[in-house]
């Protein structure tokens, strides 16, 4: 089966985004709030997919990048009341720096050790936040004085278009020559090297890009929620949810990750009447989808079948 051309996929996605931008005319602020979170989650999951699906590196610590970006932006705003856009840029940069510091040693080790390194990084960040409570708000959370907007609609549109732009960039990148080299590096680093590609350079670049979008999305979420807390941005459970969203949506597809994120958040909302059971059911459904449909939701929709 031929895959759809990059331009055609982007055009179709643009159509869907434009339709979605009219949602505030018809649905309640509560639903808009849920979708706003889902869109930011979508960016987290897309960034993760670039690293795993393409560079072949399992990052168990997406929340390390997200948390670094979110807290850096939040703390700057809290301490110095800088303009929000400066905080956002600083948050994204902090995530990139954190990503490089983590990736440089981590990319030297192979297989499960890379994943373990990223996992430990999350635990370290989490502990640092709790210990440095004076700066970070500790377990209670960090309250930022500024928010981008109090309007549900504005927040919704910002999240939607941020996701759309991030998705377009990440997707185009995955389909570009650089994406091809990245995929080759992820699947067979020895062969990629023998073809003249500097595998470490390409994987590091993927890490930086992933960190940039994760950090920026994390920072934006802080200025939407008005707070930053370990439970919503850093905890391992959050990281696992992001990974599930990406795999659920269809790994190595970038765009599927958005579907996965919306599906996860919509499911936990729909199952809220089940109380404590709801999360259990959501994860059970996710497990079944991953086991039965390894190509994820996007694979189901487009009827794509793959061996690997």
């Amino acid at each position: 089966m031929r895959s759809f051309s990059t331009a055609r996929v982007l055009l179709f996605a643009l159509g869907v985004i434009v339709l979605a931008s009219f949602l505030p005319l018809g649905v309640s602020g509560y639903i808009l709030g849920l979708l706003t979170i889902a869109y930011y989650f979508g960016v987290f999951a897309m960034s993760w997919d670039l690293l795993f699906g393409f560079a072949g590196e399992v990052n168990f610590g997406p929340t390390f990048l997200i948390g670094t970006g979110a807290y850096a932006a939040g703390i700057l705003d809290n301490l110095y009341q800088l303009p929000i856009w400066i905080c956002l840029v600083a948050g994204a940069l902090a995530a990139v720096i954190g990503g490089v510091v983590l990736a440089l040693p981590a990319l030297r080790v192979r297989g499960p050790y890379f994943g373990l390194t990223t996992l430990v990084a999350v635990l370290m960040l989490q502990n640092f936040i709790v210990v440095a409570a004076g700066l970070t708000g500790g377990e209670i959370g960090l309250v930022v004085p500024d928010v981008i907007s109090v309007s549900d609609t504005t927040n919704y549109e910002i999240a939607l278009w941020f996701m759309a732009i991030s998705g377009a960039i990440l997707f185009s990148l995955s389909r570009s020559p650089v994406g091809l080299i990245l995929q080759a590096s992820g699947q067979d680093a020895v062969q990629a090297g023998a073809l003249g590609f500097n595998v470490t350079k390409h994987k590091l670049a993927a890490f930086i890009i992933s960190a940039f979008f994760s950090g920026l999305a994390g920072a934006l979420m802080v200025f939407y929620l008005g707070t930053a807390s370990v439970g919503t941005l850093v905890d391992i459970t959050v990281g696992v949810q992001i990974i599930i969203a990406a795999v659920l949506g269809g790994r190595r597809t970038i765009l599927g990750a958005v579907l996965g994120a919306i599906f996860l958040i919509a499911m936990s909302e729909a199952l809220r009447p089940l109380g404590d059971l709801s999360n259990f059911v959501v994860f059970a459904i996710a497990l079944i989808v991953v086991l039965l449909f390894p190509n994820g939701l996007l694979g189901l929709l487009t009827g794509t079948k793959e061996n690997i």
Binding site: S172, S176, P177, V178, I181, A184, G196, N198, K201, A205
Partner: peptide, 17 residues
């Protein structure tokens, strides 16, 4: 695309072949 891969330059900036 498999053959094309081998022809690509080792550059991060080459977004269009």
């Amino acid at each position: 695309e498999n053959i094309k891969l081998a022809l690509l330059p080792d550059k991060l900036t080459r977004l269009f072949a």
